[in-house]
Amino acid sequence: MSASYASALAAARDAAGAQSYPSGALYVVATPIGNLADISLRALHVLQLVDAIACEDTRHTQALLRACGIDKPALLAVHRHNEAEGAAEVVRRLQQGQRVAYASDAGTPGVSDPGARVVAAARAVGLPVVPVPGASSITAVLSATGGIGDDGAFVFAGFLPSKAGERQEAVERLRGESRAVVLLEAPHRMAALADALAALGSREVTVGRELTKQFEEIATLPCDALPAWLQASPQRSRGEFALVLHAVAVPPDDTRALRVLELLLAELPVKTAVRLAAEITGAPRNALYEQALALKKD
């Protein structure tokens, strides 16, 4: 453990120690997705406090704990091969009054990892679940994208199917999704995903590779340029990926949208009328605003 983490543990006790940490509760703890400095003070305190830590890979979590100077001998393996048994063991400990944390290999648990099964098992028997938020590849890549629509909505699609036919079908379904879409992918499958997404043509995609790590790379490009971008450097086939398909403007039904806008403008201020017309018709807000100004001028 470095001296900096010794200071961090002390700061964690000072900052979070006075809060309430009920016994018999499951603590869902977000851990860094690459950069160890992203761990929160509250996460450090909870990992020191709990009686046991359930995790995907005990070796990975042990390395994190060792780096932070936390000695926690009770590590429970809960992975995709033993989800039911692992969740049952966590529930058994919680019912004995223990505090148990669940930590995935990286990021916020419960999304594309066994954490969802553990949380569901605890909830099913009425046990409290306490989120300890922090790093997430999903929100990290979204924050650096700039490709979310005006309404701020996005869809999380996670990992697409590994079989080529099923993956292509999934991509075709995404073609009709106008909202931003977040995808995750492993390095050994990224080339196949790039080839599949190329079918979406000029739709923009932001690729986040090795987020928060030393060789972090974030690029925005058309989907049909993704295979060439990936092949341009051997380094780009390494590391975990988080991607965002950018939102696309839905062509409005001009006649209906304009009529709705006219009716609303008769009773409401411009900004309110535009916002409501966009929500009702699905027309882009910027286009409606320009139309509203033109109507007011006329």
Rank of each mutant, 00 (worst) to 15 (best):
I148N: 01
D195A: 12
A196G: 06
A63M: 06
V91E: 11
L142N: 04
A16F: 12
V132T: 06
F241K: 02
T108P: 01
Q98E: 13
G69A: 12
S202L: 05
L183M: 12
P131H: 11
A219D: 01
Y5H: 15
D150Y: 13
G239Y: 04
L293N: 10
L261S: 07
F241W: 11
G158W: 07
E267W: 04
M190W: 05
G115Y: 06
E56T: 11
V90C: 07
A106K: 12
V119I: 15
S202K: 14
S162W: 08
L184E: 09
L226Y: 14
L193R: 04
A121S: 08
G149H: 06
T272R: 14
P227H: 03
L211D: 08
A192L: 11
S137A: 15
L245V: 02
D105F: 10
P114D: 09
P222A: 11
P234A: 08
R173D: 01
A242Y: 00
R59K: 14
K72Q: 15
G69I: 09
I138Y: 00
D253L: 02
H79L: 05
P32C: 05
A140Y: 03
R189S: 03
P109C: 03
P73S: 08
D254H: 15
E216G: 08
V129Q: 13
E262C: 06
A74L: 05
L263T: 09
R203E: 00
R99I: 00
D51W: 13
S4T: 14
V130F: 12
L226N: 05
A292G: 05
D254Y: 13
I218V: 12
N286M: 06
A88W: 05
Y5E: 14
G34A: 11
P161C: 10
A43K: 02
G149V: 07
K271P: 02
T272W: 00
R59T: 07
L197E: 01
A191V: 09
D57R: 15
E83R: 11
A37N: 12
K213E: 00
D150C: 03
R167K: 15
A8D: 00
S136T: 01
T220Q: 03
D57K: 14
H81S: 11
R173F: 02
S20D: 13
V244T: 03
A120M: 12
L261Q: 08
A140S: 14
L44R: 11
I33F: 06
P284M: 15
S178Q: 12
P133E: 05
K213W: 11
Q98R: 09
L174T: 03
V244K: 00
G147D: 01
V141I: 15
L243R: 09
H45C: 04
A101H: 05
V270D: 09
R259M: 00
A106R: 04
P133I: 07
T281A: 11
R167H: 14
E217N: 08
H45F: 14
V274C: 06
A3S: 13
G239K: 02
D224S: 10
F215W: 14
R167S: 08
E172W: 10
H60M: 10
A249G: 08
A37K: 15
V28P: 03
E279V: 03
A12W: 08
P73N: 10
R209N: 04
K297I: 07
R285D: 01
A196E: 04
Y21I: 01
A15V: 08
Y102L: 09
G110I: 05
E262I: 03
A277D: 02
T58E: 01
